[in-house]
């Protein structure tokens, strides 16, 4: 009978401790779900090295991460995109100066069903397909089969990159299926023979096939040297230039060991 109460009290104390920045030994990270697995891996390993430091992590999306920096509810705001000018205005109005730290790279690859013979599409072809102008796989060198266009929800970071780098701000056709997650997209493409979708490189598995874009396959190397056209940097934002514990954490993340953890988390190290 006593134990659950005790655990409850301890948990409560821990929460209070984690939420209280005055202790100086707590770090709060919030934001993009794309950055979350990286942050998680690095935080675990960092806490092992520094048992006194309490790191609390939460998702909620890139916009929430940047918002947390503006509100001061987090030390580090994770984002899978750069800060928008609207957000900079909002921050400076409150006397906050968001500083970006490029911590990893992400590579978005077009994927098709494993049995699809097509191996390469150009960015123009991808755009035409997502505009609904190319409707059949035979128009791009495949079998006579309708293309099932699968996209991500308009609010996802992956979609934003796709919209910017492939669609060049043109609108994806309304009849495109949308799925709420990278995992859901893999599932949908794996079970639909005519499907075309796009995912972060880390989610690629044997059930689906990645296409090369403009004859360049999406790999860590082609992403880092800039040859692969659909890639993006991932950021952590802080308020002002980093000092103290935040700086120590960031240095760890950008060290060789930290970048190795980035790779383990399925993203691409910056060097």
């Amino acid at each position: 009978m006593k134990n659950p109460i005790k655990t409850g009290v301890v948990a409560l104390c821990l929460t209070v401790a984690a939420a209280c920045p005055a202790l100086g030994e707590a770090l709060v990270l919030k934001g993009s779900t794309t950055v979350l697995p990286i942050a998680q891996k690095v935080a675990e390993s960092y806490m092992k090295l520094h048992p006194a430091v309490k790191i609390s992590l939460s998702g909620g999306g890139s916009s929430n991460g940047i918002k947390a920096i503006v509100d001061g509810t987090a030390d580090i705001g994770n984002a899978s995109r750069f800060i928008k000018s609207k957000e900079i205005k909002l921050a400076t109005a409150k006397g906050i100066y968001p500083v970006p730290h490029r911590i990893a790279l992400d590579c978005i690859v077009p994927v098709v069903n494993a049995r699809n013979p097509v191996a390469d599409l150009s960015t123009d072809q991808l755009k035409e397909i997502y505009l609904g102008k190319i409707k059949n796989w035979k128009e791009v060198g495949g079998a006579d089969q309708k293309i099932v266009v699968i996209s991500r929800d308009t609010s996802s970071g992956t979609f934003e990159v796709w919209e910017k780098l492939v669609m060049k701000k043109a609108r994806v056709i309304p009849s495109a299926l949308t799925v709420p997650s990278n995992g859901g997209l893999v599932q949908a493409v794996a079970t639909t023979p005519g499907a075309l979708g796009y995912i972060a490189l880390g989610y690629l598995n044997d059930d689906i096939k990645a296409l090369s874009v403009n004859q360049v396959p999406g790999t860590p190397d082609t992403t880092r040297n800039g040859l692969y056209p659909i890639s993006r940097p991932l950021f952590m934002f802080t308020n002002g230039w980093i000092t103290g514990r935040t700086a120590d954490f960031m240095n760890y993340l950008l060290s060789k060991k930290g970048q190795q953890l980035v790779e383990e988390a399925g993203s691409i190290p910056v060097y």
Binding site: G60, G61, S63, N64, D153, S155, S156, T178, P180
Partner: peptide, 8 residues
């Protein structure tokens, strides 16, 4: 699907 990423 969209609420989580819609800016407040």
């Amino acid at each position: 699907a969209e609420m989580a990423e819609a800016p407040f």
